Structure formats: C-alpha cells, structure tokens
Amino acid sequence: MFTGIIESSGEVIATRKDGSNMEITISSTLTPELKVDQSISHNGVCLTVTRIQDDTYNIVAVAETLQKSNIGLLTPGEKVNLERAMVFNGRIDGHLVQGHVDSVGECVSCTPKDGSWEYRFRYPADFAALIVEKGSICLNGISLTVFDVTDTEFTVAVIPYTYEFTNISSVKSGSTVNLEFDILGKYVARQLSLKE
C-alpha cells in the first residue's frame, strides 16, 4: 500500500524487453535503502526490486502491467516518481493507494494559474463510477484531488512543490499518465453491482 505522496524521483537508465516483460534499470538516491523483493511505486505502478547494483536497481514489468499503464513507454533519461510502501505507524498524508494502475489517461490541457497549474485529463468512460467531485485520484503515483468531473474528463490543481518535485512538470497536452482510482470507490461499485 502507498499514500500517493511522492518520496523521491529516479532516472531511467536502461530498458530491456525480455519476452513479454520489460526490465527497467533505475538510478535513485533511495537505492542504498532498498532491498531485493521490496515493492516500490514507479509513476503509480507497484513493481518489485529484482536486483541492486551500486546506485541503480532493476524492476520487471509483466505484460498485464505494460498493457494497463504507460510504464512500457519509459525511455532512458526520463524522470520517474518514486514512493516506497507505506508504514502503518504514521500519518497517511495522501490517500490509500495500491499501486495497481487501472488505466491510462491523456492530458487534454495544462493551464498556468499564477502560482499553480490546472491539468485537464481524459479517461475511459468505463471508470466514470469510480471518480467523484473533490475525490482522490492517483496520477503517475501522485495523490491529487479532482474537480470539474465529467464521465470522461476531470481536472486537478498542482501546487508549485508538486510541480517541481515530481514529473508532472513534463506532462503536456497529449501526454499519457497512469491512473489509479480510489480503492474505496471500487469496493462500493463492486458491492452495488452484486446487488443488481
């Protein structure tokens, strides 16, 4: 489990196809604190550390992950949002996030707002029941509050700290982002569907 509060960033050093999987090498200041078999959120995708060497570590994304996220589009030199799994003896500053990406969204616009930025995203209508006005969404691993929600689009506001500390600053119109909808909404929607 994660909170959607980005802890650090990493840089993609290399990617390599391995059958239907993709192995990714990441360099990060977090590397010395990691261990093999640890779960880390990469742009909102929970992936397991498989190897550590010096200041780099490796992760493997399987076909299902590559199909439902934009992890397979990463290239060397790109910045990746990182968050280690949450510890259950502290505050949850974001919201409960599993690191299981539901879909990819597309940036429709980015509008500077004199000290902040508003991003508008398009998402598949199949997920409309899982997003509510002033609810939470995890976008590239970042916990954000949504507003101006429709059945296919929503807006988020980004403060300067988040803009500078995460890779949201590289998101432009046409860019894709990983989306994870709120887990509580998923459980409610599931329960309601079973009663129909």
Rank of each mutant, 00 (worst) to 15 (best):
M1K: 10
M1I: 05
I5D: 02
E7C: 05
S8C: 13
G10D: 05
A14L: 05
R16D: 00
S20M: 13
N21I: 07
M22V: 05
I24E: 05
S28T: 00
T29C: 05
T31H: 05
E33Q: 11
E33T: 11
V36C: 03
I40D: 08
G44L: 10
C46F: 06
C46S: 12
C46N: 12
Q53G: 10
D54A: 06
T56S: 05
N58A: 11
N58F: 09
I59Q: 12
I59Y: 01
A63I: 12
T65K: 07
N81G: 07
M86K: 14
V87H: 15
R91C: 02
R91N: 09
I92V: 13
D93E: 10
D93P: 04
G94Y: 04
H95P: 00
V97I: 06
Q98V: 00
Q98W: 03
Q98L: 01
D102S: 09
S103D: 04
V104W: 08
G105R: 09
C107R: 08
T111Y: 15
K113L: 14
D114W: 10
D114A: 15
S116L: 12
W117Q: 03
R120F: 07
R120I: 00
F121K: 04
F121D: 01
R122Y: 09
R122T: 02
Y123V: 01
D126A: 15
I131Y: 06
E133N: 14
K134R: 13
C138K: 01
N140W: 03
G141D: 00
S143F: 06
S143R: 09
L144H: 01
V146N: 01
F147G: 02
T150P: 15
D151W: 09
D151T: 04
D151N: 14
T152S: 15
T152P: 11
A157V: 02
V158G: 01
V158Y: 01
Y161K: 13
Y161S: 05
Y163K: 01
E164Q: 14
F165R: 08
T166P: 14
I168C: 08
V171K: 14
V171M: 15
G174P: 07
T176R: 09
T176W: 06
E180D: 04
V188Y: 11
A189G: 08
Q191V: 06
L192C: 11
L194D: 09
L194E: 12
